[in-house]
Design a protein around this nucleic acid. Structure first.
Lengths: 340, 340
DNA sequence: ATTAGTTGTGAAAACGTTTACATAAATCTA
DNA sequence: TAGATTTATGTAAACGTTTTCACAACTAAT
């Protein structure tokens, strides 16, 4: 039977129940004005016809619906941190009968723009975005055009906007402090792309920890170019080739950590005896590493949840003051940085 | 300036260009019938008004549009294999101006059903689904209702449908054959959920390799319950406690591998000297493991691409015969299973 | 100069909803 | 009992498109 059944619409239900489509619509939307008797007849008709509301028509017609469509702009879906964020968002969304359209722009501002255009055309009710950089024109425009937007992981420098992110500075501080307390005095920092705000915040935490414990900061061993695996490999190589090689490395995200690990492995250095390592971003496979990795855990799931809560609020109340939610991080101490 | 600008519509453009909305629509859809002069005027008006087509209205009105909305039902977005699949789909989709709505149902048939309902209401043009099991009623219903559906990773037992998946049996065969060739005679297999078709196929490959090399199969060391981390931990513990402990383990997916690795690590056994391991599913961090993990690589990205290509074809030609695409796997030999 | 055909455009219906407004029926008030 | 109010429902417009059909203005053919 390949003939596509025509799906039931309001009209179908209406004629089945012997009422007008307006009444059916009222029943669907829980309007208390309809007579109980009518309501029951309509509900019966809905059942027997197998009617499901057409969200496309709903979206076209009204701007004030409860079941929403949320647009999600993610810089890198391969990064487990963002996967956690997505899960947090999705969980909340579907619990509220909303759906999530996803755009993974791989840190490419051009793709980001493309996706924004598409999502806009789909009339999504709101956006959750990790802007590709601090002065992201496209996201700014989105906001200026009156769309509901919540930023995750990074804010916007020119615009006051809802932001949910980790406490990057404190997270970095704790990681580095932990290394210092273990006796390390020469700790390198492999940073992410310097253009990204989080990178700067993590550097700040790294420096603050040094200051706090009275250890000199050597700018030469704070290095970074991009936030990817290759960059992690390259910079680790450079660091390990140094005459006064650091005894520990603090990497600014999970891809850099991976690059560093691979390089250390290739050079057959023992972790943590010959080189200790602490990474920003905990990952679910960190405990299966040999040795298990000490890492700064970001609560991605919670970040996602908070973001979508803020978004719902923003949609209902477009003029409320922008909120700035900082989610705490947690240092997961394992064995990659040595024992006391 | 918080007052939401009203966005430009066909009407806006039409009045700006001094033509009817029908003409504007024709220009947008490249209808050759319009006079060049008119076309230019309309194009100018489109530019100055900043008009973008409203895809919601388009979707409501016509069933035959080129920019599509694709619904994606993923069993587990935390599994890197599916992330690759998503990327393959997304890449193709966005290159064609289509968007992707995602539903991650975490292996939960109830959530799967919920998502199917929502995506259906969003009038998506087609679905790509990894059915939660072989006789997934909800997916069957979807197909019977005339929707375009392509299955990934697993097919449907009662229905002939487009399927794209890995060559599970051969992949498992190669992995186990590799271990045998290295001299292993007692190889355990930690399987996924026995209800999932892929699990059975991988078991079949495991057995075939034994048969092929004339090695007895010991059913006692083929064990599995669920496809998750915990299951990997538990079964590895059981296996390692055996009096005649296997010298190698073949794990049926990346989560099981992770569970096995953690357990092996905790018991401080040396890989591969004391216990070798080969996993189904290569992951991007496999080379950063210590030692790097030998694994059967599934080409998730390619699977995604093939799936969405099939879906586009299916949409255009609903009656074409279902295709069955088998994507080859690749054994990535690293150091977790010993040297010759 | 009339007819027939061609070319470009506009008017209007349709998609499936929501919602402002009108209206009929029922109830209340004096 | 007539008018006023309340209650329940229906009518029709609107959202932004696509698309069928009609029609006007030309051009070509007789």
């Amino acid at each position: 039977m390949k003939t596509a059944k025509t799906v039931a619409s309001l009209k179908t239900v209406a004629s089945l129940a012997g009422v007008s489509i307006a009444t059916v619509s009222r029943v669907l939307n829980g309007d208390p004005v309809v007579k109980d008797e009518t309501r029951l007849a309509v509900q019966r008709a809905i059942k027997t016809s197998g009617y499901h509301p057409n969200r496309v028509a709903q979206r076209l017609r009204s701007t004030n619906r409860s079941k929403k469509l949320i647009g999600l702009l993610i810089p890198d879906i391969q990064n487990p941190f963002y996967v956690d964020v997505i899960r947090g968002i999705e969980e909340y969304a579907y619990a509220n009968g909303s759906a999530v359209v996803i755009g993974n722009f791989s840190q490419d501002p051009k793709r980001e723009k493309l996706y924004i255009d598409i999502l806009r055309s789909e009339s999504v009710d709101g956006f959750i975005v990790a802007p590709s950089h601090g002065k992201d024109q496209d996201v700014e425009e989105l906001i200026n055009d009156g769309h509901a937007v919540v930023c995750i992981d990074r804010g916007l420098s020119n615009l006051n906007v809802d932001v949910v992110k980790s406490d990057n500075e404190k997270g970095a501080f704790n990681a580095v402090a932990h290394l210092i307390k273990l006796g390390h005095k020469r700790i390198a920092h492999i940073t992410g792309d310097p253009a990204i705000p989080t990178t700067q915040e993590r550097i700040a935490g790294y420096i603050a920890a040094h200051k706090h414990y009275g250890i000199r900061v050597d700018q030469k061993i704070i290095k970074g170019k991009e936030s990817n695996f290759i960059s992690g490999v390259e910079i680790t190589k450079q660091l390990l080739a140094l005459p006064d090689r650091p005894t520990a490395i603090f990497t600014a995200n999970n891809l850099l950590t991976l690059g560093a690990l691979e390089t250390i492995l290739q050079q057959e250095l023992k972790i943590p005896e010959e080189i200790a390592i602490v990474g920003f971003d905990d990952v679910y496979w960190a405990t299966s590493l040999n040795p298990p990795l000490t890492a700064v855990r970001q609560h991605g799931f919670e970040i996602g949840q908070r973001a979508i809560e803020l978004l719902y609020q923003r949609i209902q109340q477009p003029d409320r003051l922008p909120a700035n939610v900082i989610v705490k991080t947690e240092l997961m101490i394992r064995r990659s940085c040595g024992f006391k």
